[in-house]
Design a protein around this nucleic acid. Structure first.
Lengths: 222, 222
DNA sequence: GTTGGAAATGATGTCGACAATATAGGCGTT
DNA sequence: AACGCCTATATTGTCGACATCATTTCCAAC
């Protein structure tokens, strides 16, 4: 089961505009904290204001923009505290996801996950740092999807992960920690393979907590 | 700090329609799983289709309705599995909320919370079952808000709690468990007052887990 | 009788125009 | 010069009409 199986393709014009805007926001083409003028965007993207409004509404439900009545929409502003709070939620949710994955993933899915990790290990040894982030993402996504919990999947995949990526891009952080994180991944998968829910959750929470601590250190020194 | 301080009042027409629709959906006036026709609703609520569309968009971000492009919106259908999954997410998030509340609530807020619980105890002894649900809600809301984590607050207050109430109303469940739940509340507050993050999280998780088990029993016997 | 397709119907998606509101700037007063 | 008010302007909110798409229905062919 590929991740691509879960990205619904854009059919309507509002869909495309939404996806485009989301990329532009996450990647920083439109600066964080800036105002989103409907008229301006409608000329820029060559669509009507109704389409822009629809796109902005969806961005708001991703927590990427905030709207005030009769005033307009602003892209959320990124703060160190906000990033910490995001990681706290992520710790809680992905911990639960790992617990549920240990219960609900099929043996085949677990085998695939193990294979993925071995594959990932080869490329890490090779020192290809580009594939690292994608590999990390794949690992986390598979466990989230493996929880089989729709609410969990929705909040993490459509909400939190885009925000985290936005922080990562705009705070100029490198991808996830390289060497140590890999062992942590391995242990989480082992716990899942052993169907040890308790341990899987604990290890995943620790893994994310370490990430958070790592980020906090980088934030302080900069 | 009252809960009312956090309910933004409706200023625009779409706001009012959204709030009205949300009540009608949660309380079951519009049956779960039914289709939401834009034209029909626009005549029923005496507003233009644009307003209805905006309202439906917001309902979608609460996970109360689902939309498909060029087809329309349906109210989510309620399933026992969905309710269980909801409680799993709730356990993870409110557990984390209790942990953060133990760290971040002010001494005054904790004193207020303790007073609330004493007050609640008096009414429970009096046997007034109506106030019970409100008291339970107040308890949980204060801890959620006490976490001081905006993401946590958003997801729980604007998302999950409305859904849970929808399940509670439409599955015809009584309010929260009466007698035992009160002791659990007391212990959570004690842990928070002692600033014991670990225990506060564990107790809150157990509290919600018991609720879930209680619900599962009721679902099976019906 | 069944199946396939095309037209008809009804819905959602998109658009431009108008109304209502917030903000900025200028003007007058103190 | 500072403050308040009022007007001007620009933005958002709302509306009705049109375009586009999904679904249904009906008819014809097999």
């Amino acid at each position: 089961m590929s991740i691509a199986a879960f990205v619904e393709q854009a059919v309507t014009s509002a869909d495309k505009t939404f996806l485009q805007l989301r990329v532009d926001i996450v990647e920083g083409a439109i600066p964080a904290g800036s105002k989103l003028s409907e008229t301006e965007l409608s000329t820029k993207y060559q669509v009507s204001r109704a389409v822009i409004r629809e796109a902005i509404n969806r961005l708001e439900s991703c927590h990427l923009v905030e709207r005030k009545a009769n005033v307009g929409a602003r892209i959320v502003s990124l703060t160190p505290e906000g990033l910490i709070q995001l990681y706290q939620v992520r710790e809680a949710l992905e911990g639960m996801a790992a617990r549920l994955a240990a219960k609900n993933m099929s043996d085949e899915e677990i085998a695939d996950l193990t294979a993925l990790l071995d594959n990932h290990f080869q490329t890490v040894k090779g020192g290809e740092s580009y594939y690292q982030e994608a590999g990390d993402l794949d690992f986390h996504y598979r466990i989230i999807l493996g929880s089989k919990n729709q609410h969990l999947i929705e909040v993490l995949v459509n909400g939190i992960y885009h925000l985290i990526r936005m922080y990562r891009v705009q705070f100029g952080m490198a991808g996830p920690r390289v060497t140590t994180a890999f062992d942590e991944h391995k242990h989480v998968v082992q716990a899942i393979a052993n169907r040890d829910e308790e341990l899987a959750e604990m290890l995943m929470r620790r893994h994310i907590l370490y990430s958070k601590n790592n980020i906090e250190r980088k934030l302080l020194q900069s």
